[in-house]
Design a protein around this nucleic acid. Structure first.
Lengths: 237, 237
DNA sequence: CGACGATTTGAATAGGATCAATGGGAGTGG
DNA sequence: CCACTCCCATTGATCCTATTCAAATCGTCG
């Protein structure tokens, strides 16, 4: 792997507290792969042979049933995915595809499991990572069940803005059709929801969103800390 | 705690591999409490002071936003809940209330965290438990996004039947209004969905469900292993 | 027996989905 | 460089599912 990527990976909460020598061992067994956009990395139902760590680019997790498909998450660097499947020695419940050209560190599942069983700090870090992922998913599920479509979009935009340092404009992390699926709506419905947010100070120019009146948008969105606030990073404590 | 409850708790995956002495220490610090039905144990937003283990009875996890409320899960013995919040030292994202008279083992969060940091086997067991919980939630989220209401009900009934050894009749684990919320629908809608399953061999008598034609129901429900199959228990390996 | 809450049923509405058609870029090939 | 094509996004119209509101029924508990 490129030397310049190492620090970002080393600093992952997943490796916090892990001995340097153990970290080296894990990473030396790993492959660093480049992928073009729209490459399907994981097919749901496959066994989890690698833990994936997204170093650069972006990846979509999605799932299918009975001819339908929906988006489950959009992953951005630097973070790991399908950790739970690797640990459980189980098949993947979600598929994954690259959205943009991406670089991924792929660590063989066997290595993860061995270190997990032998390295206390790694087991602790994994548990913390899983806690975070679990809580993130609880939030998504709450949002899906408790908010109407336009409110979901409004809060999603506020979260995106927050992750961009509350910039007044930013680019959507994926195609609108993907964003729509992520928010459990059709592309048509997303389009109309953007329209509905117009009076609350939201303008759309292709893939870029302008939030002209953050306060007005927040007043409409009524964000809830127990759904919208990002977890305080464990590493920051 | 009552001696007769000890084995069920000891056999929890959460304590698998934990030294007897460590287990004793955890449990000795715990409180075993009885609660009548409809007692709210946890209010979302509260800090997680205890890990709860349901020994007898049943507990509903639910969540609120902006005046709405929905059901997130129905817990049955013997299992732990709010583990992720305890580990993350964070506030609870879900509330909990007893559905029936229940007995709960409450282990102070500090004890869990200390053992988690010091006992490798416990950390491993916790990570496994979290993996399982995470995957369960992924399945629920997939189901909510990918299946229409009546299909959700049909598959839910099949899962309940499976958990009752494929008995042809069984009692719903909660009020219909709660079941409705769990399946993301209104009570009225649930009632109509039950009606829609009638031609597929489902009869309702108050809280008891009769599945007269399991094959017909399955043909309608089109169950998907990646949503409906329970995880293979790790302890069974 | 009476009252309350839960469930069911019915009617009306609303929100989202689907179907269809149009506009708009990005990329391709001439 | 321009025309063409294709796919995505938008817009409009319609349909359908699910929610809401309302009322009746059922069952249970005082």
């Amino acid at each position: 792997m490129r030397a310049q990527d190492m620090p970002a990976v080393r600093d992952l909460p997943l490796f916090a507290g892990v001995e340097d020598s153990n970290f080296e061992e894990l990473v030396s067994a790993a492959l660093l792969q480049h992928f073009p956009p729209q490459v399907q990395l994981i097919h749901e139902g496959d066994s989890a042979d690698f833990l994936y760590i997204l170093v650069e680019g972006s990846v979509e997790l999605f799932a299918c049933n009975n001819g339908r498909e929906t988006s489950m998450a959009i992953i951005e660097p630097t973070s790991a995915f399908i950790l739970a499947a690797v640990l459980s020695d189980a098949v993947c419940l979600m598929s994954a595809r690259t959205l943009t050209p991406s670089r991924l560190l792929m660590i063989p599942a066997e290595h993860i499991k061995r270190h997990f069983a032998e390295d206390k700090m790694f087991a602790v870090a994994i548990a913390n990572e899983l806690s975070k992922a679990y809580r993130q998913l609880v939030k998504m599920h709450k949002e899906a069940k408790l908010r109407p479509a336009t409110e979901r979009l409004a809060n999603y935009l506020l979260r995106l803005a927050a992750s961009h340092d509350h910039a007044s404009s930013f680019t959507l992390p994926a195609d609108k059709r993907t964003i729509a699926a992520l928010l459990s709506m059709t592309p048509e419905n997303l389009s109309r929801s953007f329209g509905a947010l117009n009076p609350h100070g939201v303008r759309i120019q292709g893939p870029v969103v302008h939030i002209d009146k953050p306060d007005a948008l927040a007043a409409f969105a009524k964000p809830n800390a127990l759904i919208d606030d990002p977890e305080i990073g464990l590493s920051s404590r």
